[in-house]
Design a protein around this nucleic acid. Sequence first.
DNA 1: TTGAAAGCGCTACCAA
DNA 2: TTGGTAGCGCTTTCAA
Lengths: 344, 344
Amino acid sequence: MKKTTLKDIAKQCNVSISTVSKALNNSDEISEETRFKIQEYARSVNYKPNLNALSLKNSRTRTIGILIPDMLNYFHAQVLKGIEKTAIEHNYKVIICITNDSFSKEKETLEMLSNGSVDGFIVSLAEETELKQDVGHFSKTIDFNLPVVMFDRVANEIMCDKVITNNFEAAKIAVKQLVNSGCKSIAFASAISHLKVSQDLYRGYKEGLLETGLIINDALIVNTRVDHYSGYESMLQPLFEQGSIDAILATNEEVALAAMKIALRKGMKIPENFSAIGFTNGVLARHSNPRLSTISQHGEIMGATATSLLINRLESDNEQPIKIKLIETHIVERDTTIPVKVSS
Amino acid sequence: MKKTTLKDIAKQCNVSISTVSKALNNSDEISEETRFKIQEYARSVNYKPNLNALSLKNSRTRTIGILIPDMLNYFHAQVLKGIEKTAIEHNYKVIICITNDSFSKEKETLEMLSNGSVDGFIVSLAEETELKQDVGHFSKTIDFNLPVVMFDRVANEIMCDKVITNNFEAAKIAVKQLVNSGCKSIAFASAISHLKVSQDLYRGYKEGLLETGLIINDALIVNTRVDHYSGYESMLQPLFEQGSIDAILATNEEVALAAMKIALRKGMKIPENFSAIGFTNGVLARHSNPRLSTISQHGEIMGATATSLLINRLESDNEQPIKIKLIETHIVERDTTIPVKVSS
DNA sequence: TTGAAAGCGCTACCAA
DNA sequence: TTGGTAGCGCTTTCAA
């Protein structure tokens, strides 16, 4: 079976193609009568306009290109959900490309999609791009009138809308929370020391300690790069051998869980004598035993916000100023932190 | 800045548009000299053909539409990864739509994308569609020459390529494994009794018991529908109150973890006096404490296979027979099962 | 109120 | 070897 086109309808209704086009677009150039007749027939054959023809004609596709480093990561999945939902609500489709943290894949995909496939992009930088600091491909894209919105892993030097979280602040708050609940020897553990998220959290951690009057103890810090979770426990081991640890702030859930495992093995009670907070609120936290307290990054909201920014820009004719949206993080207290009594 | 078109190049090079088109397509109709000159110039301005124009001309988009119930689910994320990877390898893009298990969203999306946006679909049925058994929209899509490949949640009545796992068999093997490792009172727990996966696993569980000579004890079966994980523990409680449980087969990781939590609380040792196997190998299993043994469904392979089937069909001119691919599951033994000694 | 024609960017057929 | 033209499906301007 072949898809119905305007031509087919025109022939059937004994009118011209342009009449059909106008009738279906409810133009008042066309008489009520013919309009009705044509619309009726179109419905009966379930006519749907060919979106490619429309895109070519209008030079807009109502499609958003998404470049995301990885898809197995729960945070990204949440962002994607937020993007997809908001896009559909505004009658946009999404083309998703996974960069696998590769610079060249990011660049090639961006170029590929820049040729009529999408109206704009939502991007979180590939790890390699972040390290390389090479983001010229994005400037070029923007020059070609394809707006870009970046979220989470953003490039400061690119002038575009951004959606970020204040990770520095989040870590600081987490540390203070731990201090308020009585912790004195708070460790910091990162297996992704090369990434900006981790660096921001680390700075926040230190600042949090300073502001609460605790000292920064290098023996309580593991700030390194370990690429597979199977290495987390041995990475963390030293923290537990110097005697004084009573809490940990980890840059991801997996590291936090590994720390809890060691603590439990050593006979520590959670949260009575060992507290843990993990960065980003994913699936693991909810189902771990005990359930991990986390800093939530609100992925879905980030995705929705990024999409709104982009669509806004696409649909406004006048030049828009650059917008940076900060999405507040918040701490989800579960079973690995001692609730702080509200002091009056 | 405006994208370069063939017209622009033609003007610059003082040749006709069709000459440019042919030159860039390496047609030997064009002399080596002009061909080189044109190609050189095209490269210098970084010419990329407009994909919309190509799609309209060729009536093929090199785009695959993906309809997936949910994206926060690790299994689906894995499938998606497999799809995206294989698609890109064959120079296809993917448009992803999340149906949220809604029949109407599935139907509408399918119709929306059927108009020139994609060349074919890869689908896992929405829960609502599976329950309603209303899959007419897929027959219509196929009638319009848009091939469909279904995976995991498939509709038997639709004649299309499919990628499935033998869940019945998987459950049977899991039960036998538990029996071989010494378990005698194996429970079955499902919170998604309304879904076909769950029903297949349940049948496999019972068959496994029968084949190993154990009896089916209703007190060891919880087969119900609980929509939020917070209700899992109370759902499972009865299993632990009738005294004889020593293992569980759960239809998802979350239920398995909830069961482990109860068992640990009751002072049982895992796996010494309580074993657990969860269906589908996700993130939770790897990071739980102890690490959960699972039945792995190989999501990435399923995605890759589905994509190959689709692309194969798209790129072959002659009628292809319907193909059904069965992806073998296998048991990933971690710390919640007792390794079975190989008996000779 | 209706329709013819041009054009979005590209390819392919046919003529020169 | 090169170029003109038609056409993919649609919208829009202008003429009838």
